[in-house]
Design a protein around this nucleic acid. Structure first.
Length: 403
DNA sequence: CGTCCACAGGAATGACGGGCGG
DNA sequence: CCGCCCGTCATTCCTGTGGACG
């Protein structure tokens, strides 16, 4: 079969999918028309923003909840409805949504906000302070109620401080024709404490909390989406329940549940199956896990990879290991490569980092006369670690089976 | 019951590279 | 464009500590 034929076959197969009708509704950025079990939050946000329809400035809002609890979807949904209503009743409202992780500098955020009021700023060339001045001036000329939504706001503050937040929450004093309301969204619950008290009090005028979904609620959500995503009857029984149960274990993360369902469907399709089974869900879980691990490992510095390799070798041998063992084995790995090793202090930090990333589990134990150490086990399958380390040009040399 | 092991982990400091503000 | 600042990776020096052993 020629290359063209192969490609044609793959493309036409995906066009007449036996599994999916519309897989996009399972993607994380899709905003559904219905948001089950978030009625309370929708009502609260809507009632906070409602005064804007009469031209009054709504309170600033601070929204928090763990990942996959519907914060972004609810906010986008309410803003969309608000905007539609404003056109209907002729209120001057401008809504703007910025994901601060994607646009991760103060300047880029300002650029986005400016776009929403029809101001074209140059990509580069002017200072942030100048951009801010132009933004304020243009905003005032437009005489509108400006609702600025900053998603994953903790990223911006951690990287660049709360300068922008401070200015946005205070700029109403500089405006006479327009008003600004800020909606801040974060999944870092401790983030609020790290804010400047002045920003905290003005941004936190009203707070909305998004609790995690439980397994039943996740099932509901999945069922509604599955109706849109899949051909009728292709989901084997137990599939939705399993996706929901797995995601419920991870603090009720709806994004995770939808990812599982989507990837399970994709695997079923790749295998040419007629149905999505629980087995496909299990494979999806492994695939997502591998992707996550691959992502974090690939960005780690070389010595962290070598420490992880040392841990994995020792754990495959004995089931568990300790800091001292890891360090000496790590040093032999370094000498095999003919490179310098880092100090034990540093290795100790690397072990802590690997623990926080959920790749290993390390807990401190005292063995009395024989000192205090950390007992380390792997939190992911060892084959996953090995296969991911295969991609590193240095670490791969030391892998079992090589050389 | 005090010791003392084998580390944990805090603080200060430095090299280095990339991006920001002026 | 250039200097400066900031985050990351790392070192050095250090104090702290749970509990088996003598």
């Amino acid at each position: 079969m020629s290359a063209v034929e192969i490609i044609d076959k793959i493309f036409s197969q995906s066009l007449k999918s036996k599994i999916f009708v519309n897989r996009d509704v399972l993607r994380p950025d899709y905003v559904p028309d219905e948001l089950p079990h978030r009625e309370e939050q929708i009502a609260k946000l809507a009632s906070i923003l409602a005064p804007s329809l009469q031209g009054a400035r709504p309170s600033n809002v601070f929204i928090y909840g763990l990942t996959g609890t519907g914060k972004t979807a609810v906010t986008k949904f309410v803003l969309r409805k608000l905007y539609e209503k404003s056109l209907e009743v002729g209120a001057r409202i401008t809504v703007c949504y910025v994901n601060v992780r994607q646009d991760d500098t103060t300047y880029r955020v300002l650029l986005r906000l400016s776009e929403c009021i029809g101001l074209r700023l140059p990509f580069t060339g002017i200072s942030t302070a100048e951009a801010y001045r132009r933004f304020i001036r243009a905003l005032n000329l437009r005489s509108t109620l400006f609702i600025a939504t900053l998603d994953e706001i903790d990223f911006l503050v951690k990287k660049h401080g709360d300068e922008l937040l401070y200015r946005l929450t205070r700029c109403n004093e500089e405006l006479d024709q327009s008003k600004v309301t800020v909606i801040g969204i974060t999944n870092d619950l401790k983030f609020v404490d790290s804010l400047d008290p002045r920003v905290r009090s003005s941004l936190g005028e009203v707070e909305i909390v998004f609790p995690p979904y439980n397994a039943m609620q996740l099932e509901d959500i999945l069922r509604k989406r599955a109706e849109l995503a899949f051909r009728p009857g292709v989901l084997d029984k137990g599939v939705i329940e399993l996706c929901a149960a797995l995601a419920a274990r991870e603090h009720g993360d709806a994004r995770r549940a939808l990812d599982l369902l989507r990837v399970a469907g994709e695997i079923a399709e790749r295998e040419g199956a007629d149905m999505v089974t629980v087995e496909h869900v299990r494979k999806a879980r492994a695939e997502l896990e591998r992707d996550r691990v691959a992502e974090v490992i690939s960005t780690m510095p070389l010595h962290a990879k070598l420490v992880l390799l040392a841990i994995t070798n020792l754990v495959s041998l004995n089931g568990k290991t300790t800091t001292g063992e890891v360090y000496s084995h790590y040093r032999t790995l370094c000498s095999k490569l003919g490179i310098e090793h880092v100090t034990q202090r540093r290795v100790s930090d690397i072990i802590s980092e690997l623990d926080m990333l959920g790749i290993i589990t390390a807990r401190v134990v005292s063995r009395g006369r024989y000192g205090k150490t950390r007992v380390i086990t792997l939190a992911v399958p060892k084959d996953v670690v090995y296969s991911v380390l295969e991609e590193d040009p240095y670490a791969s040399v030391l892998l079992p089976g090589n050389r």
